[in-house]
Amino acid sequence: MSTPATSFTDHYNFAYLDEQTKRMIRRAILKGIAIPGYQVPFAAREMPMPYGWGTGGVQVTAAVIGHSDTLKMIDQGSDDTTNAVALRNFFVQTTGVNTTTHTKGASLIQTRHRIPEEPLSEDQVLVYQVPIPEPLRFLEPRETETRKMHALEEYGLMHVKLYEDIARFGHIATTYAYPVLVNERYVMDPSPIPKFDNPKMHRMEALQLFGAGREKRIYAIPPHTDVVSLDFEDHPFTPQEFDQPCAICGAEHVYLDEVILDDQGSRMFVCSDSDYCEERRTEGHTGHLGTNPLDAPSNGTAKDNASSKEACK
């Protein structure tokens, strides 16, 4: 999709990182794969983008990526969010690899906060950017303590927290970064994806890699691995559901963004996965607001009001 100019390669190594750093990261990735869900400490380097903006994901991608890869970079499900654009440009400049927005055409996908709607296949790798890799961090801020809890498989605190939610609200009040149990052993933070995406991790065909740069951790889920969202028998895990399809492509059972259309409270719900939405529209699907409500505002607003009220219920 792009023909990159790679003048950066005169000054920097392929994929920016030096080979010693890549080896160190690669070793951590292999350990992560061998111990699914366990956070492998690694000597994250200082990267030319801020901590918290994807330095971990970028380091993992840089250690994995090769000439023949086709890279897709998404943030919030979309290829065109500003940080996705910035990170994609980073790899175009430092590697010259091909990029794509099509989920199916990518061999390597780096994401922040979403898993694509299109099921991933065996020959794909999904790299997550992770801000806080420790699922127990908000219950116990000390690394020395949480490390012990993982070692002893002592996850009572997490269950107590979830159960307190149930006692207070009648259900578990965690909507994203919803903790999962991997391969029946490690409780893992799935990164701040909405819990809607959690079931996609379970026995996914693609390899999933997670990089947390500031916190210096790498972890992994091999293909076909059990990933179970924590819950209770009487309060089973329930992913979020939307009571309407995408307003512009009509897709159901997908994660939707709420878009505010005016200051009268009109809003619409559209696919968060922009590639999925575009593909569907290319195939001829339309939603109840047509394919582009902003082109015909007069005709969209009335309907919108109706739909937003419905959605609010």
Binding site: N13, R26, L30, V64, L207, P222, P223
Partner: peptide, 17 residues
């Protein structure tokens, strides 16, 4: 650079599958 990357991908896939 590129050969090490190719070898690594084979090893990564070997442990992942």
């Amino acid at each position: 650079v590129h050969e090490a990357q190719g070898i690594f991908r084979a090893l990564m896939n070997a442990l992942a599958r």
